[in-house]
Design a protein around this nucleic acid. Sequence first.
DNA 1: GTTCTAGAAC
DNA 2: GTTCTAGAAC
Length: 345
Amino acid sequence: MLVCWLVSKDKKHGRIKLPHAETVLIGRGPETEIVDKKCSRHQVQLKADYNKRYVKVKQVGTNPTSVDSVDIGKGQEMTFKPGSILYMVNNLYPYVVEFFEGAGGSKGDEVKTCIKRPPEDSVNNDKESPKKFGRMESDRSISNLNTSRSEKTSSEKLPHVPEVKNPGHWSQGLKVSMQDPAMQVFKDDKVVVIKDKYPKARHHWLVLPWESISSLKALRTEHLNLLQHMHTVGEKVIKDYTNSSSNKFRLGYHVIPSMSHIHLHVISQDFDSPCLKNKKHWNSFTTDYFLQSEDVMEMVKQNGRVTVKDGATELLKSPLQCHVCKEQQSTIPKLKEHLKKHWKS
DNA sequence: GTTCTAGAAC
DNA sequence: GTTCTAGAAC
């Protein structure tokens, strides 16, 4: 009989049993002896899969839980396998997971007080295997790019290349793409620019720092130079790769991005793209969900960090309003038809 | 993040 | 009947 244990790496307390396909909530409390207020009482939701020999970890609390230095993100899941380290919150309180054969009997120093929920789908877990991220577009051309660079200055000299420990998870896709030379439109020692894989306008790039910054919340005063550089590179890409006089652009960040690793959107304001399909897409670029790059820099300058207001998610449900003339449209197809009016010939 | 699809809206 | 959205699954 197989048993799965969650083990505190710093041996703060006894191991916690994770039964197959049962949801277990862990966080601040007597069973973990974590008293840190940054850790929610229900910080993570764990569900072991004895067939796959891994544990699904969902971050329930607000502050970051990470697996091998990759932030999971609130409400999101990652796989946690033997050999990986789960940090309960803020890179603190390390845990490992262990699967043991035939250790059914001995209760040992097991901690019993964890909260359990009935399994949601106790069978049916066998079919899916970790997916590779996305699809690669084979026809991506970089022939007109990187003209100023000599051929082989690439990755070996870069100061930070973010390690992707869970490349299978979709939220890690940017960290994979940014390291793929075929995706890189521009790079220097601090940042790399890639095309958005699902552009929401005729021109849509992402500027990513090599330095691993998980999100806007991690920004501090010491990042100001980098933020400014990201902005400057964004403007350079507009200048180099578009007829910039005829295209309006905005540079900014999503308040709550879906993808890990901070990224500056550089997007033309035509919003002419088949990938723009729903209200969330629209509102994420045309409401205050989109924080202009300059505003982010100003906030960091003033307050030393970016404060994210609660309820930003609600902005994604706002009525569809044209970003140019403010006229409201009832559906996405009607909005897309309306937008044509504002395109230049 | 995208895809898929049930069922709401028309 | 078709179009469109929104939520689950990935």
